[in-house]
């Protein structure tokens, strides 16, 4: 603690600005803010920081969920082209939102000694780790699967419907198709097969979904990552879609639980 000495000097005079400040204090023009104001401010900041971090973790978990159920995650096994398509179709806007939330959290934490005394790399790194671990934890408890199921049962409301509609079925131009092997439309061979694709968004305005039938062909050089496929198997097909046909560069069977 500092120790300073004051001398009571009969001849000391206050400067003008000191007189002005004291006059304002004594007249009530300026007042001390009450203690509870500062306590509430800290509590509010902690709540906001927690909400920001939680939102960020939810976004991470949604990103993982959407990559998995849409089949985009399987693109990583489809060679160079799959890798390129994966990066092009990656939900970068969600990642950007996440980064912004982490930066916002950093600004809030900087109000406290623990925040500003630590180098930025450590606080950002710790925040990112918390968000990623939280995201994986939320993904593990199948949060989004349950919300998707509620959306499909029309129990999620408009916002939920907007978020989850089409998450299982990416846009056609992404070139990733999730379907079920069908035999009713033709035989299964090493170079072609038929599949049905459910939950396809038929109308962007009404968000109505339906089923599509595809004839999948596998030209030379395409990656068929499963030895055999049988009717009823769930598959991910990556390729260029035409009118009722897909020329695939990668096909893989989804094992039970692999996309959950």
């Amino acid at each position: 603690m500092e120790h300073n000495t004051t001398k009571q000097d009969n001849n000391s005079s206050m400067s003008d600005f000191e007189k002005i400040v004291l006059a304002k204090i004594n007249s009530g023009q300026i007042k001390m803010k009450p203690k509870y104001y500062f306590v509430l401010k800290v509590v509010l900041m902690c709540i906001v920081a927690f909400l920001v971090l939680t939102t960020s973790a939810v976004l991470v978990s949604f990103m993982l969920f959407s990559l998995r159920v849409s089949g985009r995650l399987f693109l990583l096994g489809f060679g160079g082209r799959g890798l390129v398509v994966f990066f092009i179709t990656f939900p970068w806007f969600i990642l950007l939102a996440d980064v912004l939330f982490i930066l916002l959290f950093e600004r809030l934490v900087n109000h406290f000694k623990l925040g500003y005394r630590s180098p930025l790399l450590y606080t950002l790194g710790a925040s990112a780790v918390i968000v990623i671990v939280g995201g994986f934890a939320l993904d593990h408890i199948s949060l989004h699967e349950r919300l998707l199921h509620q959306m499909q049962s029309h129990r999620l409301g408009a916002i939920g419907g907007f978020v989850y509609t089409g998450v299982k079925t990416p846009p056609r131009q992404d070139g990733v198709f999730r379907g079920v092997i069908a035999t009713s439309s033709g035989p299964i061979t090493n170079t072609s097969f038929y599949m049905t694709q459910n939950d396809v968004v038929m109308s962007s305005s009404s968000q109505a979904t339906g089923t599509m039938f595809w004839h999948v062909t596998l030209p030379a050089g395409s990656l068929f990552l499963t030895r055999t496929i049988l009717p009823g198997d769930s598959v991910i097909v990556a390729g260029d879609a035409g009118s009722g046909t897909i020329e695939a560069y990668g096909v893989t069977k989804i094992e039970p639980g692999e996309d959950q």
């Binding site: 000191e18 400040v21 204090i25 803010k33």
Partner: peptide, 13 residues
Amino acid sequence: QEVFIKAYQNIRS
């Protein structure tokens, strides 16, 4: 002057 006014207003922090 503004510094001291703010100091007084926030002294309870």
